[in-house]
Write a protein that binds this DNA or RNA. Sequence first.
DNA 1: AGCACGCCGACT
DNA 2: GTCGGCGTGCTC
Length: 812
Amino acid sequence: MYADVILPLALNQTFTYGIPVEWEGQMERGRRVLVQFGQRKLYAGIVLRIHNEQPGYDVKPILEIEDEIPIVTELQLEYWRWLAEYYMCSMGEVMNAALPAAFKMQSETKVSRNPELEVDEAELKDDEFQVYELLLELDSLRISDLGKKLNWKNPMPVIRRMYAEGYVNLDEEVKGTVKSKTERRYRWPEGYGEELTQDAFDQLKRAKVQSELLLAYFKLNTDKENPWVREADLLKATDSNRSPLKALVEKGWLEEKVFPVEPERIAAVESAPTLSDQQALAVQNLNTAWEDKITSLLYGVTSSGKTEIYFHYIHECIEKNRQSLFMVPEIALTAQMVKRLQSHFGDKVVTYTSRLSDRERLEVWERMLDPERRPLVILGARSSVFLPFTDLDFVVVDEEHESSYKQFDPAPRYHGRDAAIILAHYHKARVLLGSATPSIESYQNAEEGKYGYAELTKRYSGIRLPVVEAVDIRKETIRKQMHGHFSPRLLEAIKDQLEQEKKVILFQNRRGFAPVVICQNCGHSEQCVNCDITLTYHKLSHQLRCHYCGYSIHPPTKCKSCGSVELKMQGFGTEKIEEDLQVILPNARIARMDLDATRKKNSFQKLVDRFEKGEIDILIGTQMVAKGLDFEDVGLVGILSADSLLNYPEFRAHERAYQLMSQVAGRAGRREERGLVLIQSFQPDHRIIQQVTTYSFEEMFREQRADRKQFHYPPFYRLIHIEMRHVKVEVVSDASDFLAGRLQGIFGKRVLGPEFAPIARVRGQYHKRIILKIENGLSLPKVKKALQTEVKRLDFHKDHRKVRVYFDVDPV
DNA sequence: AGCACGCCGACT
DNA sequence: GTCGGCGTGCTC
Ligand SMILES: [Zn+2]
Ligand SMILES: [Zn+2]
């Protein structure tokens, strides 16, 4: 029998291996196996298919079966296949994204001296002698390390020569030995009766500790259903060590077994929420919609109680003993959120994010596969769609409009929300997309009736919407009345809040505002040598750094272009704002919340706690302050520059600006008092700003939808980006011109470009981009097939074939 | 994607 | 003459 195995490679195919006869019985789809690929490399792969079709080439055998059970379900394999096709990548790439790192195995070759062979050192060539000498010192080492130690670029030819002569041995070392936590437990053997026998006592009368251990076992084993007692408990009760325990096991008085460590017990203290009238109506609408639809959209304004609806359904699933997935953007998965779910669902909740350690992720996966330990509620980021659900009934995608749900690098470039919907299709589960500012796509789907729809338009009683005001900073800028980035209106409002002992949040957009060093004489700024990027200043390391490739230099003291020493740091980042504001308000307690300030573990939570306790008056933050945090007593929210949000050269810029500003505004005065939101802008009359100040989501939606239709964007057209990369600009240009020409022949004016990507050169490679706009109604699979065919044509040309081609389906 | 093999320029 | 550059082809 043969097995087609998925390997962790960007190759659009599986590889067929022979199943050793003795394993034929236990071979199944979804098994993790160790195989050799190429000359010596070993990989762990997943069995996709088992069959009897003998291939026309010699197959290699499967070397090991890695686990007791298949670690990937049949449903997951089909799901992987769908994702690979839709996002135009290999199943190996999907597998890489899906599996916890602890399941991945990859070998490295190690060299060691052949102890059998007498070596005549005179016979060795120079380079061989260097290797030999090194191996006398260290008995074995990886080939890559050997190369580094000897400072050789390619040590392999020498090693191969020495291997052929028999001087050295080569072994494959499979790295990666992360295991889930286990513990030993013991039981009184089955059939020995209910209690300790006199017989046992007699035989152990000279072994005092062993008798004590047995007594302790019977004292500790109170659970009739479960005879196993943890080793740690036994040792603690008798104040002994492992050796008497071992003796008991050897003599057969106790049985030993290894168990996975049980997660901490957490009691659920909250029961299903009582729904308000409007929530009950929404639930009723959703239930009706789900009768014939998979997905429903819940449009609920801030503080209207979307979460109660989510919890209502999750409670329902738990009662049915079925699984639910609560998906949130990674940035919103805060300790606050975890606690809130645990108060409702106790230890039935498990979180799954990239912030977990390899072992923790492995443990979640293993629990999902074990019917006895299966968690019922997964709170997770986008990657939780890859978990081995066995009985998924309900999926929430909270903040469904969030663009951070889209994975970018590496492939598969999947959208967490869309992938969750497909997953739900496979499970015949229900999906609830929730947002206070739904995406144009989802809202359109709801309008068209593709999605069910429910809304919550009323806030909890007593909660009033903040007053949102646009602050025109054109005049102030011309009249030089701005204090740095602060208009007199904003400063006054901040001072006012501080007097009232209220808190202030200031929002500065993250992107494009990192500080840069600019020559005041000629305007020159330091560029990365590998990328088309201006180096930005990092305070921590006191360096100028490229955030694409990591290239960094010390800040220059004079301009490299004109030699002038008049260099000035310019930027609008949170650091700068903090400094400026501290000068204006020396007594205010100001803190920053951005990626830099929260990089250290727990620093985020500490900031949140301090702000909550009132130890900080003003919190200056990026996108981070907008998501998932709920502070009391915030009287004022200031958005320092709306223009940067509105002026992005992306088709979603306006939609996103609306969403972000609304979300930030929602941080003001959520309890009792009415808060104030000030939006500074050079274009205070901009439609989007007007719509934010008047809370006109519907109007924004209609206008944006019209724009999308007119300019051929989603939800009326689907986009595919084809990105081509090569070190030589002529090579990419030629190849992309050729491909675009071919594609125009098929798709006509649906093809745009090629153009240089927004950042034309990254890590020394030039990037060119072709955009395909496919109207709804055209078969996407057919389009993709034609596209693949044309891309394959690049292989027939000696220069075009050198170009790497990447796809991004539904780019954000 | 990685990795081995093979054929040409610049160094001992 | 050897070293090592990369272009070419293959991996079950
Ligand atoms: Zn760079
Ligand atoms: Zn200069």
